[in-house]
Computed example of a mutant assay.
Amino acid sequence: MSSPAVLSAIDTTERKTRNDLAACYRLVARYGMTDLIYNHITARIPGSDHELLINPFGMLYEEITASALIKIDIEGNVLAPGSTSYGVNRAGYVIHSAVHAAREDVQCVIHTHTRAGVAVSCMTDGLLPISQTALRFMGRVGYHDFEGPAIDDGERSRLIAALGRNDVLILRNHGLLTVGRTVAEAFLLMQRLETACQIQVAALAGGPPIFPSRSSQERTAALFNPATGSADVSVSGGLEWEALLRQLDRIDPSYRD
């Protein structure tokens, strides 16, 4: 099916979700957070009964377009195949299905296997409150112990218990996961989390780090928390997302196709 045919058959809400999700894939690639054709970013279509969009398994993130995205139900069954001949990697969808089923507040789930993210996931103390960037996540991170590749449906309940109501889940010896009420929020959280992990790996290479005072840690965390944050601090990703979409449109607007 051609790209125009796919997009002409959908409503405005789904079209916007497709555009945002395709942009998110391109941005994750642009910011160096990909792992060949692996991992997923999923987005719930607002107003639908657990209808989700996911990448075709076999495409690089830099190739993803709005029409290529596959519409699936919560169990990963294909509802609309998109414009390519690729299918869905259902084994890799276990993590995403668990989160979307348990968290009605979540529209978007991003999972990565970056070098810095996996490195921090292997550290005994996990993400350390040693930078302003890391303090964004203070009190908002869950940890899930490694059980092997996440392909077992039985792991879902344990994974969800570890995530709880947090925005971030660090999968021990595996990688990072962020959830957002919008695609923009999920991307902002992942980009900031990845940056915090890179800072931590670099800082620890130079010896024991300096920790901010407990009071400054708490104040900074509160400023970046959506529930308690300041109007002077961006927490939802809206402003950043608008700027990033302008950047993509200047460089290569084909993600909208």
Results as ranks from 00 to 15, higher is better:
residue 126 G to I: 11
residue 126 G to T: 10
residue 127 L to V: 05
residue 127 L to W: 04
residue 128 L to W: 07
residue 129 P to E: 05
residue 129 P to I: 03
residue 130 I to P: 10
residue 132 Q to E: 13
residue 132 Q to I: 10
residue 133 T to S: 14
residue 135 L to E: 10
residue 137 F to E: 05
residue 137 F to K: 00
residue 138 M to G: 14
residue 139 G to Y: 08
residue 139 G to R: 10
residue 139 G to W: 08
residue 139 G to T: 12
residue 140 R to M: 14
residue 141 V to P: 03
residue 141 V to S: 06
residue 141 V to H: 02
residue 142 G to M: 10
residue 142 G to E: 08
residue 142 G to Y: 07
residue 143 Y to D: 03
residue 144 H to N: 13
residue 144 H to F: 15
residue 145 D to A: 14
residue 146 F to K: 04
residue 147 E to M: 10
residue 147 E to W: 00
residue 149 P to F: 01
residue 150 A to W: 00
residue 151 I to H: 11
residue 151 I to N: 10
residue 152 D to H: 05
residue 153 D to C: 03
residue 153 D to H: 10
residue 153 D to F: 09
residue 154 G to I: 02
residue 155 E to W: 00
residue 157 S to D: 06
residue 157 S to V: 00
residue 160 I to V: 08
residue 161 A to E: 07
residue 161 A to N: 05
residue 162 A to L: 06
residue 165 R to G: 09
residue 166 N to T: 07
residue 166 N to V: 07
residue 166 N to P: 02
residue 167 D to Y: 02
residue 167 D to E: 08
residue 167 D to A: 04
residue 170 I to Q: 04
residue 171 L to E: 03
residue 171 L to P: 01
residue 172 R to N: 01
residue 173 N to W: 06
residue 174 H to V: 00
residue 175 G to Y: 00
residue 176 L to C: 06
residue 179 V to I: 03
residue 180 G to W: 02
residue 181 R to G: 09
residue 181 R to Y: 01
residue 182 T to E: 06
residue 183 V to H: 01
residue 184 A to V: 11
residue 184 A to H: 01
residue 185 E to V: 08
residue 185 E to F: 02
residue 185 E to A: 06
residue 188 L to I: 13
residue 188 L to N: 08
residue 188 L to F: 14
residue 190 M to V: 12
residue 191 Q to L: 14
residue 192 R to V: 09
residue 192 R to I: 07
residue 193 L to P: 03
residue 194 E to S: 09
residue 194 E to D: 15
residue 195 T to Q: 15
residue 196 A to M: 01
residue 197 C to M: 11
residue 198 Q to W: 08
residue 198 Q to V: 15
residue 200 Q to K: 02
residue 200 Q to V: 02
residue 201 V to L: 03
residue 201 V to I: 05
residue 203 A to Y: 07
residue 204 L to Q: 10
residue 205 A to V: 08
residue 205 A to R: 10
residue 206 G to H: 13
residue 207 G to S: 13
residue 208 P to E: 15
residue 208 P to H: 11
residue 208 P to Y: 08
residue 208 P to S: 15
residue 210 I to R: 13
residue 210 I to A: 15
residue 210 I to N: 13
residue 212 P to I: 11
residue 212 P to K: 11
residue 212 P to H: 11
residue 212 P to E: 13
residue 212 P to M: 12
residue 213 S to C: 12
residue 213 S to N: 11
residue 214 R to A: 15
residue 215 S to T: 14
residue 217 Q to I: 15
residue 218 E to D: 15
residue 219 R to A: 15
residue 220 T to A: 04
residue 221 A to I: 12
